[in-house]
Amino acid sequence: MTEPATTPDAPAWFRQALAHRPEHRQVPVEGVPIAYRVWGDGGDAGAPGVVLVHGGTAHAGWWDHVAPQLGGHRELAVELSGHGDSGHRESYDSHQWAREVVAVAAREGFDRPVVIGHSMGGRVAVTIGVDLPETVSAIAVIDSALNDSPPDEERVRERRRPHRVYPTAAEATERFRTLPPQDVVLPYVRHHVARASLRKVEGGWTWKFDPRVFGNLLRLRDQLPQLTPPTVLFRCQHGMIGEAMGREMARLVPDGMPVVELPGAGHHPMLDQPLALVTALRTQLALWPPKVR
């Protein structure tokens, strides 16, 4: 477990959020240990639990400064297999990751929670809504694009190369980059998530995620028409979803899907516009659970 990392210039709200330390837990799911973090003491009566799912190559710590601010809910953040402190598998796919999220939520007694997924995690959330719709009350997808074209093979090969080992954690932290690249990242958030992305190995430090996690995702174009749980899409202004794609995605969902823009945000809003993201999520959570259809 990595201790919270802050920098002297971190604002009060960020330090206060990190002061709400989650419990770090682990449970085996289909033969692999799955790590996760839990905040809160049960939440308000009647409020659904909230399950947070990170994006590709990320980890549960990306939510450390977001989850404590959602208020009135019990929250947990899962580390999908191949990420963070969870175990690795021989291969990965969205169906497997969806079962992991549901298993962890069940282990913690979450009854039909709201699942919030960012990027690749949004695809996992949609897969839950298609494969296991009875296990969730609603879904929030954060900047998960349609991506109709298969990943560029050269790019996939580049990402799957073994990780470089850095002599110090400080040097590795300085090499932290987002996928896709993002121009604006708040330095104190970057420091926190980068430091928690590392593990100690012989000769120094390297990244925790398994390079083999890439290239096994389902197409949202095929999944959105099968969605039945209420779903909202948060589209980042400078992210991967343009206005036209957002409208197209909304049309693909049988009962429609609200599309909410996060102004000024890049693809990773918890890194550049975390308070705007918190406000949007808190507003949406106040409207859920929705009416039964």
Rank of each mutant, 00 (worst) to 15 (best):
H20N: 13
I241T: 04
V253L: 07
A17F: 05
G246E: 04
A138W: 03
R99K: 12
W39N: 06
R164C: 00
V232P: 02
W62R: 10
N147L: 13
E3N: 11
R25P: 00
R199K: 15
H268M: 13
L70S: 06
A172F: 05
M245K: 03
R123Y: 00
R175G: 01
L76S: 05
H88Q: 10
D210F: 08
I128Y: 06
T231F: 04
R15I: 00
V27G: 00
T57G: 01
V130D: 12
H59N: 14
A19M: 01
V253P: 01
V114S: 08
E248L: 10
R112K: 15
T57E: 07
L277N: 07
A10Q: 07
A196E: 13
Y166L: 05
T57F: 10
A286M: 06
T168A: 09
V185N: 12
G266P: 09
A125H: 03
S137I: 01
H268F: 12
E154S: 14
R107E: 15
V232R: 13
R235A: 13
R155C: 00
R157G: 10
A196L: 15
R251V: 03
I128H: 06
R21H: 11
P113N: 08
D272N: 15
L70P: 02
P33E: 13
A98D: 05
M245V: 06
L186V: 08
K291E: 13
V51M: 10
V38F: 06
G61L: 02
G264E: 07
F214V: 14
Q273I: 03
P225K: 12
E171P: 02
